[in-house]
Amino acid sequence: MNALPPGARRHSAYEAIKAMIVTGHLAPGRRVTEQDLTEQLQVSRTPVREALNRLQRDGLVVERPRTGFAVVAFDETMLHEVFDLRAELDAYATRLAVDRITPADLKVLDDLLNAGDEVARTDPTRLGRLAEMELGMDLHRAIARCSGNTLLAETLDGLLIKCQVFVWMELTQMQEFETARADHRAIVGAIAAKDAARACTLSRCHIRQSRDGILGLMHMRRDLRDFYVGKG
């Protein structure tokens, strides 16, 4: 990895650390230091430091005085705040996209859908699932860009980054990949048909159902923990 140019090293370190957080390799609350990550990723401290600063801006890590950084706690409060706001902004972006979509834009969306299908068909590994999730996120980002509202697209990008830990939890532990792909196709189909009402409804339902599924999973985990603690 050290053979990469500086810009690529910075990007690679950021993506690698983010993937470790999203997939739970770096658990919520865990302390992370430049030294540990430098050794794991086999890069110098500079790209790791820049990656951690960027992840702090993304809201995935927080700085701890004299101890480095810690992964944020992805709790129910954050779940509701992020997904409820995203549901409304995503639907708004979708409505704007219906009015502004071009044939070239639709091809971008179709290409992302097809790429997700291909990954699902050919790569059942954990890395394949991560790639499929990223393609789904990229589809939402592409729809937001089609809205023509740059600030809206940037805001949604920040929310999507915060959503990734929760979405990974839902997709992998509840086996919701196929459902997510079907939802995405339905949303794009409604956009292509210029059916703004249906596209917005599908977008909101997609995000709210994801939120509710994750919330149920979090409650089940809490109940199991309380049950075993009570038995002890």
Rank of each mutant, 00 (worst) to 15 (best):
L135Y: 01
R10K: 04
L79D: 05
R145N: 14
K231F: 12
D75V: 01
L79K: 08
D138P: 00
A3G: 08
M78K: 13
G232P: 00
E50W: 05
F177Q: 09
P103H: 10
I17M: 03
V165M: 10
L113N: 06
D110E: 14
L139N: 02
L139I: 07
E50K: 11
V98H: 09
P5R: 01
M218P: 12
L217C: 00
I214S: 06
M174Q: 13
R45H: 03
A186T: 10
S210Q: 07
I207Y: 00
K162C: 11
E39N: 06
A70N: 01
L106F: 07
R45I: 05
T46K: 08
L89R: 13
Q175M: 10
R129V: 11
R64M: 15
L171E: 13
R141F: 05
V98D: 05
V98E: 10
P103G: 15
A199K: 03
F166A: 10
T122C: 02
V167R: 14
D212R: 04
D195S: 10
H184I: 02
A190C: 07
R141Q: 12
L171R: 07
A197G: 04
A182V: 14
G24V: 04
F166M: 11
L127P: 00
A180M: 11
E170Q: 12
S12N: 07
Y92C: 11
E154R: 14
D183F: 03
Y14R: 15
G24Y: 07
R95T: 15
A70Q: 13
G59N: 06
E81W: 01
P103E: 13
H25K: 15
P5W: 00
T33E: 14
V62A: 14
G232H: 11
M220A: 13
Q42S: 09
D110C: 00
D99Q: 15
P65H: 12
T94E: 12
G128H: 06
A16T: 09
L171P: 01
F74H: 04
A104C: 04
D183W: 09
A180Q: 09
L127Y: 03
L85Q: 15
T38C: 14
R100S: 12
D157I: 04
E176H: 12
E39W: 08
P6D: 00
A87P: 08
R211E: 08
E154Q: 15
L135H: 01
R100M: 12
V62T: 14
G128N: 07
E50R: 12
P65R: 10
A73N: 03
L130G: 03
D36G: 10
E88I: 14
A180C: 05
L217M: 06
A115L: 14
P65Y: 06
L26H: 08
L217T: 01
R181P: 02
A192C: 05
K162M: 14
